[in-house]
Structure formats: C-alpha cells, structure tokens
Design a protein around this nucleic acid. Structure first.
Length: 577
RNA sequence: CGGGGCGUAGCGUAGUGGCUAGCGCGCCUGCUUUGGGAGCAGGAGAUCGGGAGUUCGAAUCUCCCCGCCCCGACCA
C-alpha cells in the first residue's frame, strides 16, 4: 500500500518551464520523473512503479510466447562492435568511454552483437533452433537532439529481442510470433496503435513493421487508408502509377522562358504562352543531389518537394544525401542552374532517379539545359531515360492508397515498437553458424524486435491524459485505487484504513491519502493529477455509511455502502481497460 | 550542426546601472480551518549558471565559457 503521508512525492502546482509536451509536463508535475540533464531523467517512486508495471506486462507476454530473458551489461567492450563495423558506423550517437588503461568501451545503444555472440558461445546445432532471447535493459544513445521529456531520451529502457533460425521460412515464423506477442502486449497496456510498414533501411533486413501510437506530439508521420486499413510510415509509402501512352504527344519543343526561377513563375508563363490548364504538377522538377560521392538527379512533379528522408530510407547503401552546392555545380558545367532537364543527364554523367509519378510515357514541361529556356512535351522513355525509380516525392494527405486507391490520411505517432527481419548480417560478421542435418555449416538468420519501455510511459500518458492530469490504464497505473480521506475525523481515517486493507486482500493495490491537515481540495487535485483509475472518497457520505467511487477517466461518480464497496470496485475495475 | 529563445530560492516568476534582490507556490512554528489547490501571525531558504572585464557602484553593460528548451538537419 502506498501512503501519501510518507510517500516520497511532491506534486507541483505550476507547469515546469522546460516541459512542453503533455506527457513531460504531467509526469514532472505529478512527481513521476525529474530531469537530470538533457534527455536524462530520474524516476521517483510513482514513476518507478509505473515503469515496472509496463516492464512486467512486456515480460509476461515475452515469456508467454516462449522467449527467454537474459541480461547484458550496459557497458560493453569495443571489439564486437569493431567486427560488425558499428564502432565506426554508429558515429557520434555512440557513447564511448575508456577505462584506466585507455581501453575503449561503449554504452550499448542496442545489443545485436552481444546476443549473436552469446548464442554462438552456447549453440552449434540446427537442433537448438529456433531460439528467441530478450532482455529489458537501459540503452544509451547520444542523440543529436533529445526531446519531449522521456519520448526521446539519451538514456532509455528498451526491451530488445532477437530470434535465431536456420532458414528464411523459420525467420518469417519467428517474426510472426513476435508480432503476435507485441499485439497482446500493447493491447494489455491499453494503447491505441497502428502497425505500419516501415523501411528496413541500412540494417539490410527485408520485412519491417513499426508499432505506432498515434498522438499529435509524435515525431513519426505515417499514412493510413480509411478504406482498406493500409498503413505505412511515410518513408515506406509506395506510389502506384501506371504507364501512360505518349504516342499522341507532339515532339519535344524548346521555348524561351526568361525570369522563371520558380515553378510558380514557370506555370504562369506557360498559361500565358500556351493557354490555360498548366499547374505545378505539369512540370518536372530536377533536384540535384550528392549521394555520398555520386552526383544524382531526382525527378519529382513540380508541385512536390523531394522528401530527403524518404529518399534516403529507400536508397540502400547510401550513407549521406545532401543537396548540390555551388562547388558541385562547378564540377558539372553542363548543368544550367534553374533550367535543368533530364534530357542530357547521360551526357553530363548524372544518374537519374525518378519518383514513380514520373511514369514511363508521361509528358512534362522541364528545363532545356540552357539559360532562360524550358522544353515542352518531354516524354519519359522518348526524350529521357530513367536509371532507377525510387520513392522520393513528399507524401500528402489525399494521395492514393497503393492497395485500393482511396485517399489516405496522414497522422503523427510515437514509435513504440519495431520488428524486423534482420537476416544474416550480424551472423555473417560474427560468424554465427550451426551444423545442419547434413553436417554442413550454415549461417543463422536473425530477427530483431524492440519495444521502447520507458517511451511507452510517455506514449501512454500522451494518449490518456486530459486537461486536469494523467489518467492511466489499469495495468499501468501505480495503484488501482486512490483512496482519499476527506475530513479530519478519526472515524474517516479508520474506515479508510479498513477499506484499503480489504481491497489489498483482494489484490487491488491502493494508494491511501492519509495526510492529516491537508485540505480535501488539495487531495482531490492531487488524485486527478496522479491519474490512478479509481478514486474513492471517504468523507461526509460516511454518515450514511457510504463512500464515493469516482472513475478518473469518465468522471462518473456513485455512492456505495461501505460494506459493498470492495465488490463494486473490483467489478468496476474489470470493466476498465 | 544551423536558426530562435532562456538561465534569479525546491517550483513558477518580478526586477534594463543605485538602498538589505521582490512576489506566488512549496517548506518550518503557532492558532484557526477541513468536500475542490484554506486564513492569520511569525520564520528558514539565493555563489542572481560560471569566469573575466567596464564602473564610485553590476542580476542589469561587454567578452568568453557552460547548461537548458523549441524548430530544422540527424535519429535500426
């Protein structure tokens, strides 16, 4: 039982000045967390209990799925990360340190290497597979910009699992088992979430999905189809455009277009010169970029920007994409800034990437590779060639769903889970092999699965709070019942003590506000701020032998005879999520 | 890393060169009060982020440094 008379807790009446998003503001005000440094937080008793509750739900569901818990240190030696090249690849996001002898260590940002090596150390037969291991552990990433309280911290608690299989089919099965376990976990945590397709990215995996908790303060943008349920991270959204028939399009025509540095000014000129009907979407934008050391041009419709994040996510093996600078243009004298078209790309030694919207046979207005000149009727496949099609254009609300053509909606969310099929990258690098039935050595294939446990505290707070405070789902709350003594009479305190122990004997955890001399108003405000799902008031109604039961989320109140209160509360709890 | 903002008691803040750095919340003592952040009286609590400088005099002006927040870049 938590007693407020002695609980290490101080609620704040004012919002902390450094907190902006609701979860951060309320978790600090209600005394769950305190900031220590940018992106680094301490957990006070209420916070620790809440975090543990989430951990336990996660742990129970992992165990129920047959995955086994292990634990690694947070501080790790350099060598394994050297072998997978991540000591270098991870870059400045990796916290590094040295011991007294000058030997390098790191604080683990994720533990693929350690899990791979652990399995390698114990297992060497196909008979031992499949295997899934997990841990709940503190991770460290020196984020360029920690933000939004515990939504993106530099130290955070994560559950990470890894599956080990002999075959690709086995990997798919392990992946599905993790997916199912995640569904159960997030359901129990009372979260709203969408499972969206994600880009596997540099990790080299094939299939990847994210569990996104929708909320306005989320940092991830995703599309959702209201018709068929298609959901994808913006980066993974695909565009379905069919080829056009260009046989009736006239020959390419170059025309004078002075002073048309922008798409708008070009469209205006087109409409004056060639009659109405031209829009930004009629024009073809040529964006020059450096993909590592290669100069590329990316084609998108003139009314859309290139989404560098999407482009990068879809460009395997490229570390850095940046826009052309003056020095780059200087190296390609054939490119006339502001008047670039794909027609001469080959001649200029430029690799052409095009968004799928630039379908074969489509006809465009674009630069003519000469100052103050544009070209009309520039047809893909006839007047220029595309080397690679790639999802590059910015996605908009109303774009059509790739599976059913309905207009999609765009929403924001917090990423709370990510599952993906890693494949053999780490097993290869660290030489994790087992003998198969024929006695032949086979490289193991892996999956990797994460849940942001401390982030889930924030995500749940974001999704469930209201204007007066937090409002936890039953499984997560630091206690199930917040018992408030409203009044000064000893009989009230005695009745509350009795009710509290009766509840606890029925496994209903209680936080008892047994503070003497604290006014009822203060106790009510605190209860609402702290967000325990049921608030029971032992006060003036006791004269009639009643207590008042309030449901935090709905605000419903009812008076119940003390004798019936425990049963009634147990019943009410069962109806709440 | 680029842009913007900020740093005064545990929290929220006032104070643009001049007296002992002010107020609210919280905290301590006493009395009163107890169903919606109580009242009165008394009290404790500050290296004004740090350093250097300008000045008779600096929280306030100048320079350097540190830290924090927001937007963007970045982020399996």
């Amino acid at each position: 039982m938590l007693r407020m008379s002695t609980l290490f807790l101080r609620t704040l009446r004012d919002d902390p000045a450094d907190a902006e998003v609701p979860s951060h503001r309320l978790l600090v005000r209600a005394g769950y967390i305190r900031r220590i440094a940018a992106g680094i937080y301490s957990w006070l008793p209420l916070g620790v209990i809440t975090l543990r509750n989430i951990e336990n739900v996660v742990r129970q569901e992992m165990d129920a799925a047959g995955f086994q818990e292990v634990h690694f240190p947070a501080m790790l030696p350099r060598e394994p990360y050297e072998q997978t090249n991540r000591w270098t690849e991870y870059g400045p996001d990796l916290f590094r340190l040295q011991d007294r002898k000058g030997t390098d260590y790191l604080l683990g940002p994720t533990h693929e290497e350690m899990f791979t090596l652990m399995v390698k150390g114990e297992y060497s037969s196909y008979k031992d597979l499949p295997l899934s291991l997990y841990q709940i552990q503190t991770k460290y990433r020196d984020e360029a910009r920690p933000r939004s309280g515990i939504i993106r911290g530099r130290e955070f608690v994560m559950k990470d699992s890894y599956s080990f299989d002999l075959t690709d089919e086995g990997l798919v099965e392990s992946y599905q088992r993790h997916r199912a376990a995640y569904v159960k976990t997030f359901d129990r945590l009372g979260m709203k979430y969408n499972i969206v397709s994600a880009v596997a990215g540099a990790m080299g995996g094939s299939s990847s999905e994210e569990f996104l908790a929708p909320c306005p303060t989320g940092e991830d943008t995703y599309v959702l189809c209201p018709q068929c349920g298609y959901a994808a991270n913006v980066e993974a959204m695909t565009t379905k455009v069919s080829a056009a028939d260009a046989s009736s399009v006239g020959a390419l025509e170059v025309f004078d277009s002075p002073n048309t540095p922008t798409i708008d000014s070009l469209v205006e000129l087109l409409n004056t010169k060639f009659g109405g009907g031209y829009t930004g979407a009629s024009t073809l934008k040529n964006v020059m970029l450096m993909a590592d050391t290669t100069a590329i041009s990316v084609l998108v419709p003139g009314d859309r920007e290139v989404d560098l994040k999407r482009l990068q996510a879809n460009m395997a093996g490229v570390n850095e994409i940046r826009v052309f600078e003056e020095a780059d243009f200087a190296k390609f004298p054939g490119l006339v800034k502001g008047y670039i078209g794909p027609q001469d790309a080959k001649k200029n030694g430029i690799t052409v990437y095009a968004d799928p919207r630039i379908a074969p046979g489509t006809s465009w207005v674009t630069g003519a590779n000469a100052k103050d000149k544009h070209a009309l009727n520039v047809v893909n496949g006839r007047d220029f060639e595309v080397d690679h099609y790639i999802e590059a254009a910015q996605i908009r609300e109303g774009d059509s769903c790739p599976s059913c053509d309905t207009a999609v909606v765009i929403d924001r969310a917090i990423e709370i889970g990510h599952i993906f099929q890693l494949g053999r990258k780490y097993a290869d690098a660290l030489n994790l092999t087992v003998l198969d039935q024929n006695g032949k050595s086979q490289v193991v294939t892996m999956g990797s699965y994460g849940i942001g446990v401390s982030r889930a505290v924030a995500a749940i707070a974001e999704q469930t709070h209201d204007e007066i405070g937090l409002s936890w789902p039953v499984e997560v709350a630091p206690a199930k019942v917040h018992l408030v003594v409203a009044g000064k009479d000893d009989s009230l305190f005695d009745a509350a003590e009795k009710l509290a122990s009766d509840l606890e004997s029925r496994s209903v955890s209680v936080m008892l506000d047994d503070r003497r001399g604290t006014s009822p108003g203060v106790k009510f405000k605190d209860a609402e701020l702290i967000g325990i799902p049921i608030i029971v008031v032992v006060g003036k109604a006791l004269e009639q032998g009643n207590v008042e039961v309030r449901v935090r989320k709905s605000g419903e109140k009812s008076e119940i005879a003390v004798a019936l209160a425990v049963d009634e509360i147990v019943k009410t709890l069962a109806t709440l999520k």
